[in-house]
Design a protein around this nucleic acid. Structure first.
Lengths: 197, 197
DNA sequence: TCTTAATGCAAGTGATACTTGCATTTATAC
DNA sequence: GTATAAATGCAAGTATCACTTGCATTAAGA
C-alpha cells in the first residue's frame, strides 16, 4: 500500500518567504517608480534570494500583479447613502484616495503597461468585478426612482473612473480634493442647463 | 579678422538621416508593441547606424517622444458645426479615431509611461495645447447662449478624452463606433432625467 | 528521524540601452 | 574645385536586468 506523500509544503518557511516578498514589494512600490523597480531590490529588501522569487513567481510581471491585486482587493466600498449622488461620490472618492497613494499609482501604471497574458486575464477580471459592483449602485438608483433605467450606468462609471486614471497617468497632475464631487455632478447633471423638477 | 564658420550642418545628409529615422520609427510603431520597440530595430529599418541615433537623440524616450509629438500634431480639428454637441462629437470622434490606430495607441501608452524630464515637459505642453483648443469650443457655446459659462469646459473635456484613454490603455477594450456620440450625450445631458426646453 | 521540497549560492546567458575611439564620408565656406 | 571639420559608420565595450541552471544546504512534515 502506498502512503500518499504530499508534494507541496505550503506551511512554515514557504509562507514566511512569500509574505516577506510581497511585503517588500509593496513597501518598495511606495518608494520607487514602478518602472524602475527591480527583482533584485525586492529580493534584498525581503532578505530572500533572487532565485527564490523567480521560482515562486515565474516573471516580474506576475509578482507585481500578485502584489497589486492583493493591494487593491477591497478598496471599493459602495455603501447605500440613500442617493445615487451620494453613492457615486463615495465610490469615486474612495478610488481617488487610493490613486493618490503610491500603491494606487503603481496599480494604474502597471495595469496600463502589463502585456503579460496572466496580467491581461487578471486585468479583465478586475475591471469586470469593478463594473459589476458599480452596476449595483445604478440598480439601486432605479429602485429609488432616481433614474428610469440603468443603461447609462456602465459608461457613466467608466467616465468617472477613467477621468481619474487619465489625470494621474496621462496628464500626471494631482487629483484635487473635490474631484469626486465635481465629476459626479458633471456626470449626473451634464453641462447643459436644465430644469429639474 | 575672424570669419564666422558655422558649427552645424543641418542640410543634406543630416536632414535625410533624421527623416529616415523618424519614418522608420513611425512605421515600426504600427507593427511592434511600443514596449517592445528597440533602437536597434529602428536603426536597421532606417538604414542608419545605431550610434547615429544615440548622437542625435540622447535617449530612446527622447526619440519616441519626438516621433509621437509630430505624429499627433494636427489631428485635433475643432470645426464650428453650429452647436456644442456637434463640435464635441467632432473633436472626440477625431481623437477616438486616432486612438484606434497603432500610432494613437502608442502615443497614449508612451505618454503615460515616459518618465523622462524632456518627455514630461512635452507632455505638459501637449495637454495644455489640447485643453486650450477645447476651451475655444466651450467659449463658442457660451456665445451661442447654449451654456451660461465655460467653467465646466475643462473638466468635461477631460472626462471625454480621459474615458477614451482609459478604455484603450487601462481596460484594453476597443472604442465602439458610437463612443463619441454616447460620451458627448452623457457629458452634456447627464444621467439624471430632466426637462429641457 | 528521514525524505525531499524549499531555499541559498554562484555562475552564466541573452537582450538592450547607451558609450567611446577611430576611420570614413560629405556639407559647406572659400 | 578644394580644404576643413561636422556628421556618420564601424567595432568594441560597459552596465543593467530579467531570467536560468547546477549543486549544496536547510527545514517541513510524515
Amino acid at each position: 500500500m502506498v502512503t500518499l506523500t504530499p508534494k507541496q509544503r505550503p506551511g512554515g518557511r514557504t509562507a514566511r518567504t512569500r509574505a516577506a516578498v510581497l511585503d517588500a514589494a509593496t513597501a518598495l512600490l511606495a518608494e520607487v517608480p514602478p518602472g524602475d523597480l527591480t527583482v533584485g531590490q525586492i529580493a534584498a529588501r525581503a532578505g530572500v534570494n533572487e532565485t527564490t522569487i523567480y521560482r515562486k513567481w515565474r516573471t516580474k510581471e506576475a509578482l507585481l500583479t500578485d502584489v497589486l491585486m492583493t493591494l487593491s482587493g477591497e478598496r471599493l466600498v459602495a455603501p447605500d447613502t440613500g442617493s445615487l449622488r451620494g453613492d457615486l461620490v463615495a465610490v469615486v472618492g474612495a478610488v481617488a484616495e487610493f490613486l493618490r497613494t503610491p500603491g494606487g499609482y503603481a496599480l494604474a501604471y502597471l495595469g496600463a503597461t502589463a502585456e503579460d497574458e496572466t496580467a491581461g486575464a487578471l486585468r479583465d477580471g478586475f475591471w469586470a468585478d469593478r463594473f459589476e459592483r458599480a452596476r449595483v449602485v445604478f440598480d439601486r438608483a432605479v429602485e429609488r426612482g432616481e433614474i428610469p433605467d440603468a443603461r447609462l450606468g456602465a459608461l457613466a462609471y467608466e467616465a468617472l473612473i477613467g477621468t481619474l486614471h487619465f489625470r494621474i497617468l496621462a496628464r500626471r497632475r494631482p487629483l484635487d480634493a473635490d474631484i469626486a464631487e465635481r465629476l459626479v455632478d458633471l456626470v449626473l447633471d451634464g453641462v447643459l442647463p436644465a430644469d429639474r423638477g
